[in-house]
């Protein structure tokens, strides 16, 4: 095999490897992560077709809005519990750790952790999901958007 052909062969196999990685990643993404989270009603009822209902003990992500007034903080530790809701029934999230800056009542949250009862998640990670609206504080005040982090004390 002459060196030029050899070079081409290695490069093309590298490209094939790259394409395989891409395809693998996309399949990986498609199978498990196209939906990055369940909504609280999906945890209760399963996804639309009813086949994908998470089971107790499964590691899942749940995304929904923090129910106003549901945030309960343990005064001595970093333990916190709150309820998540979308359009249907609620589920409870328990978490120990530092919450993201954007965490507040009414805020969109994605919690990752183990489903310990059919409606309770023991979260190991809590991520904040924000909306696509941007405005300065003055305008937010004027249109009545609440923007203060909740007081949990």
């Amino acid at each position: 095999m002459n060196p030029r052909r050899k070079k081409r062969l290695t490069i093309i196999s590298l490209i094939l490897f790259g394409v395989a990685t891409v395809a693998g990643l996309s399949l990986y993404g498609l199978s498990n992560f196209v939906d990055v989270f369940y909504t609280p009603s999906e945890v209760h009822n399963g996804k639309e077709d009813g086949t994908l209902k998470p089971e107790v003990g499964q590691n899942i992500r749940v995304g929904g809005l923090v129910v106003v007034g549901s945030v309960k903080r343990d005064p001595e530790t970093l333990k916190v519990s709150f309820d998540l809701i979308d359009s249907g029934p609620m589920i409870t999230v328990q978490y120990e750790g530092i919450l993201p800056d954007l965490f507040r009542e009414g805020q969109g949250i994605v919690a990752q952790g183990e489903l310990i009862t059919p409606t309770t998640v023991m979260a190991s990670e809590v991520l904040a999901k924000h909306d696509e609206e941007y405005m300065p504080k003055e305008i937010a005040d004027a249109v009545g958007k609440h923007h203060k982090p909740a007081n949990y004390n």
Binding site: F33, V36, P100, D101, L102, E125, V126, L127, K129, H130
Partner: peptide, 11 residues
Amino acid sequence: PMWGTWWIWDA
């Protein structure tokens, strides 16, 4: 700083 993670495998 905003979500709480550098990366997530979302769509």
